[in-house]
C-alpha cells in the first residue's frame, strides 16, 4: 500500500508500523469516577468496520510521525492521512 504522508508525500507502507484504531488517541481521564471502566472500554472495545476505518500508523522507517490514516478495510482505499499530533490537538488533548 501507499500512504500519502502529509509532509513527505506518497510512501510505501513497508516503512510504517501499524497500531490500530485511532480511538487510542482518546485516552480517558485517570481521575474519573469510573476510570477503570473507561480504560477498559478504551483498551479492549473497538469497532471492526467493513469500510472506513481511522487507524494509527507510525512512520518508523521515516520521520517517526504517528499518522491517522482513514482506510477502507474492504478496498484499501485511503481517503485521508493526518498527523496524529494535529488530530490529538483537535480533540482537545494538550498536556
Amino acid at each position: 500500500m501507499i500512504i500519502n504522508h502529509p509532509l513527505l508525500g506518497p510512501r510505501d507502507s513497508q516503512e510504517f508500523t501499524y497500531l490500530g484504531d485511532a480511538s487510542l488517541i482518546e485516552r480517558p481521564d485517570w481521575q474519573a469516577a469510573d476510570a477503570v471502566d473507561q480504560f477498559y472500554d478504551y483498551l479492549y472495545l473497538r469497532d471492526n468496520p467493513a469500510g472506513l476505518h481511522r487507524e494509527l500508523w507510525y512512520h518508523e522507517q521515516g520521520d517517526r510521525s504517528w499518522l491517522v490514516v482513514t482506510r477502507n478495510t474492504l478496498t484499501h482505499d485511503i481517503t485521508s492521512v493526518e498527523l496524529a499530533r494535529d488530530v490529538a490537538k483537535a480533540k482537545g488533548r494538550s498536556t
Binding site: L8, R11, E15, Q61, G62, D63
Partner: peptide, 9 residues
C-alpha cells in the same frame, strides 16, 4: 529522506 534499505533504516 529516511527509508528502508535491505531491512535497515
Amino acid at each position: 529522506t529516511r527509508t528502508l534499505l535491505e531491512h535497515m533504516g
